[in-house]
Computed example of a mutant assay.
Amino acid sequence: MATELRVLDDGAWISVDNRRRVPNSDIWPLAVTDFCACETAHVVLEAFTDVGVDGERVAVQAVGQCIDCGTEGGLDWLAVGRVRDGEFHPYAPGELRARLETGNDFR
């Protein structure tokens, strides 16, 4: 079963099967990141720029800002949920989710 993924509303939402499921305005605590020097970067996602899937993981590229140190920039393939048995299960922003390794092809 195919899952349709799209970036909507100028990067404000990720649509999964034509339903807005992941908003960009959440704060994501990220461990294991080179986004900034913070041990855990608390990043406000300002806009999604791409979405893809690798197996069952749904991941996004985004731009954001760390609310602790002020660093702004791009995030490369952040896991935001998974698809299991044809159903999307988003990760809660409060869950620590490490960025996916760069170089993975989510297209």
Rank of each mutant, 00 (worst) to 15 (best):
M1E: 11
M1F: 10
A2W: 00
A2C: 02
T3A: 08
T3L: 11
T3R: 00
E4Y: 11
L5V: 08
R6V: 11
R6I: 08
R6L: 13
R6N: 14
V7S: 03
V7M: 06
V7K: 02
D9L: 11
D10R: 13
G11E: 05
G11W: 02
G11R: 01
A12M: 06
W13M: 07
W13R: 04
I14D: 03
I14K: 03
I14G: 01
S15V: 04
R19E: 05
R20C: 01
R20T: 02
R20H: 06
R21D: 01
V22W: 05
V22Q: 00
V22Y: 04
N24V: 03
N24G: 01
I27Y: 03
W28F: 05
P29N: 07
P29H: 08
A31W: 00
A31C: 11
V32M: 12
V32N: 14
V32C: 12
T33V: 03
F35P: 07
F35E: 07
C36N: 09
C36T: 07
A37D: 10
A37R: 15
A37Q: 12
A37S: 15
C38S: 04
E39W: 01
E39Y: 02
E39C: 08
T40M: 09
T40A: 01
V44A: 13
V44E: 11
L45K: 08
F48E: 01
F48V: 07
F48K: 03
F48H: 13
T49Y: 04
D50M: 07
D50E: 14
V51F: 02
G52W: 03
V53C: 15
V53E: 08
G55Y: 05
G55I: 04
E56G: 13
E56S: 12
E56L: 10
R57C: 04
V58M: 08
A59M: 15
A59F: 09
A59K: 06
V60S: 01
V60Q: 03
Q61A: 14
Q61P: 07
A62D: 05
A62E: 03
A62P: 05
V63E: 10
V63S: 10
G64Q: 05
G64V: 06
Q65K: 14
C66P: 08
C66N: 00
C66V: 07
I67F: 08
D68G: 12
G70C: 06
G70Y: 06
G70A: 01
T71K: 13
E72G: 13
G74L: 10
L75P: 06
L75M: 12
D76T: 15
W77L: 15
L78P: 07
L78M: 15
L78F: 12
L78Y: 09
L78S: 09
A79K: 09
V80L: 02
V80N: 02
G81Q: 04
G81N: 00
G81E: 02
R82W: 05
R84L: 13
D85P: 04
D85E: 13
E87V: 15
E87H: 08
H89M: 12
P90I: 02
P90Q: 03
Y91E: 06
Y91Q: 00
Y91K: 00
A92F: 10
P93C: 09
P93E: 11
G94C: 06
E95S: 04
L96E: 11
L96A: 06
L96I: 15
R97T: 04
A98H: 11
E101V: 10
E101S: 12
T102I: 09
T102V: 12
G103R: 05
G103F: 05
G103A: 05
N104K: 14
D105G: 09
D105A: 14
F106S: 09
R107H: 08
R107M: 09
R107D: 09
